[in-house]
């Protein structure tokens, strides 16, 4: 009668070990842990031109004999923007209160948003690009200067300011 009793321990141990390992195979997961990661995105509004200064010069090729109006255009610079806010537009103005000649500006081929109509620059901010909310993009800046022969010679120096603002 003592022999079966002595065998009991190894049998029970085997059962325990088998049960434990079988459970391990079933679950396969040893453990897990977590933490929280927060992503914040600030309000970002960026605007820049790729060229800091532009020189427009009315030359002989801009003049037609018999016409008072002389014009010259420049489309060499680009305006770049990025905004992650909705409902934005770009306005433009000059610091020159009384220019001798007329200077117009227009946004050409914007990659997003809508170009406003060509505007004659003044010290009052005027729409340049509309509907640029939550986008990045670029457009060519086209300046067109108009001078009359009757206005004679001279020069104007404008500091043009483009601004992203609420639409």
């Amino acid at each position: 009668m003592k022999r079966p009793a002595r065998l009991l321990f190894p049998v029970l141990l085997s059962v325990y070990v088998l049960a434990a390992s079988s459970e391990s195979v079933q679950a396969q997961t040893y453990g897990s842990d977590f933490h929280r990661v927060t992503v914040t995105v600030a309000t970002i509004t960026l605007l820049q031109t790729n060229i800091g200064s532009i020189n427009l010069s009315i030359t002989g090729s801009s003049v037609i004999a018999g016409q008072d109006l002389m014009t010259v255009s420049d489309q060499s610079s680009t305006l770049l923007w990025g905004t992650n806010s909705s409902g934005k537009k770009v306005t433009v103005r000059t610091n020159l209160a009384a220019p001798k000649y007329s200077l117009k500006v227009a946004a050409i081929n914007p990659t997003s948003g809508t170009a406003a109509s060509e505007v004659t620059l003044s010290t009052t901010s005027t729409d340049f690009l509309l509907n640029i909310g939550r986008s990045s993009g670029s457009c060519a800046i086209r300046y067109t200067a108009l001078a009359l022969a009757s206005q004679g010679t001279g020069s104007d120096v404008h500091t043009i300011t483009f601004t992203i603002t609420n639409q």
Partner: peptide, 14 residues
């Protein structure tokens, strides 16, 4: 929110 560009227009004798 803003960008600046200096534009100089010169009209010589023509």
């Amino acid at each position: 929110a803003s960008a600046r560009q200096v534009v100089t227009l010169e009209v010589l004798e023509l």
